[in-house]
């Protein structure tokens, strides 16, 4: 298989996953740019990519998103998208949507790498080894980060629930 065939196989296997990854983190227009930048980088590095390139692709996409991650705009957009999903839903779903909004708001308060650790496992469905690779750290460091992120998120949600009950 030559480089072009390898790239084509990789692209067709992972395009939808990388697109979904980006859409979970930014708006549609920017997500398409991120996907294009990520696969352009994959093409440049096709000779060096492993047989399981998905963590590398996520990591590259994460770096492409660096600017807006730092500006925190993403948190607003994610929360906005969840709120938009709430529009027009039937009443039975309203409680679930509100719960989602609380969760998204709490996720938005976490440090970026903590949040990414949680999402790589929960949304991208990576095991801890692949998620550590996607986050660019050792498996041990990833486990520590994931543990702390869960603790922080649980504390944030508990505070919110306590306020709601008061």
């Amino acid at each position: 298989m030559n480089d072009e065939e390898r790239f084509t196989a990789l692209f067709r296997r992972h395009h939808a996953q990388v697109l979904a990854y980006a859409l979970r983190r930014t708006d549609t227009a920017r997500a398409e740019d991120v996907v294009a930048e990520t696969f352009a980088a994959a093409w440049r590095h096709i000779g060096k990519l492993s047989e399981e390139p998905l963590p590398w692709l996520y990591r590259t996409a994460w770096n492409c998103l660096a600017n807006e991650r730092r500006s925190n705009a993403r948190q607003v957009r994610v929360a906005g998208r969840v709120a938009a999903e709430g529009e027009g839903v039937v009443a039975d779903h309203a409680a679930g949507v509100a719960e989602n909004a609380e969760l998204m708001a709490a996720l938005g308060k976490l440090p970026a790498r903590d949040r990414e650790a949680l999402l790589l496992v929960s949304w991208e469905g990576l095991d801890q080894r692949s998620a550590a690779s996607a986050l660019g750290c050792s498996v041990a460091a990833f486990k520590v980060r994931l543990h702390r992120a869960r603790k922080k998120l649980a504390a944030l949600l508990a505070v919110h629930e306590a306020v709601q009950e008061a």
Binding site: F11, R12, A20, L23, W43, L103, L107, S122
Partner: peptide
């Protein structure tokens, strides 16, 4: 973790058919 997973705003299966745009991007790259 289950609660976060359930709040996933974009599932791959919900993306619909992206083949045409994807292939255009692949050819462009």
């Amino acid at each position: 973790m289950d609660r976060i997973a359930a709040a996933n705003p974009v599932r791959v299966e919900d993306l619909g058919d992206t083949t045409e745009r994807a292939e255009a991007l692949r050819r462009e790259i």
